[in-house]
């Protein structure tokens, strides 16, 4: 339970980043977005597929995406589109994530910092 919670905390912001990245390419509905995440991450990032919808609704409330119910393949689905504010957020989040990833990679490789002196 504790581990799962920590994983969730660690992944805070990642679903938003992935959803915005996919929507920056083209408008998509929920199922397509889940498939897109699975394909682009090679299945490494797996979470309850239903959890993308509250994230999408929050992004919509923040003015980052817009969702409209449209006909898709003979059915109606809520199709999401990224908005200009969403593109700005995506650029900022991508930059921040790259900095974090580079810092973690540097730390794991043991380079860039001297060992702390003891005594």
């Amino acid at each position: 339970m504790t581990t799962a919670r920590k994983d969730t905390d660690f992944l805070n912001g990642v679903p938003e980043l992935l959803l915005l990245r996919l929507l920056a390419r083209q408008p998509m509905h929920g199922y397509d977005l889940v498939q897109g995440i699975r394909l682009t991450t090679g299945g490494v990032l797996a979470f309850g597929e239903g959890s993308v919808y509250p994230v999408l609704h929050r992004l919509e409330a923040e003015g980052l995406v817009a969702g409209t119910r449209e006909a898709v393949g003979g059915r109606t689905r809520v199709v999401y589109r990224i908005r200009p504010l969403g593109r700005k957020r995506l650029a900022a989040a991508t930059s921040r994530w790259e900095q974090v990833a580079a810092a973690v990679a540097a730390a794991l490789n043991g380079g860039g910092h001297a060992e702390p002196e003891l005594g």
């Binding site: 309850g48 597929e49 239903g50 959890s51 919808y53 929050r58």
Partner: peptide, 20 residues
Amino acid sequence: ARVGEPTVLAARAAEDYRRA
């Protein structure tokens, strides 16, 4: 397995609606 366990899904949804 695919969409989510109800309590976990609801907890995450409640957190996202709170943040919204």
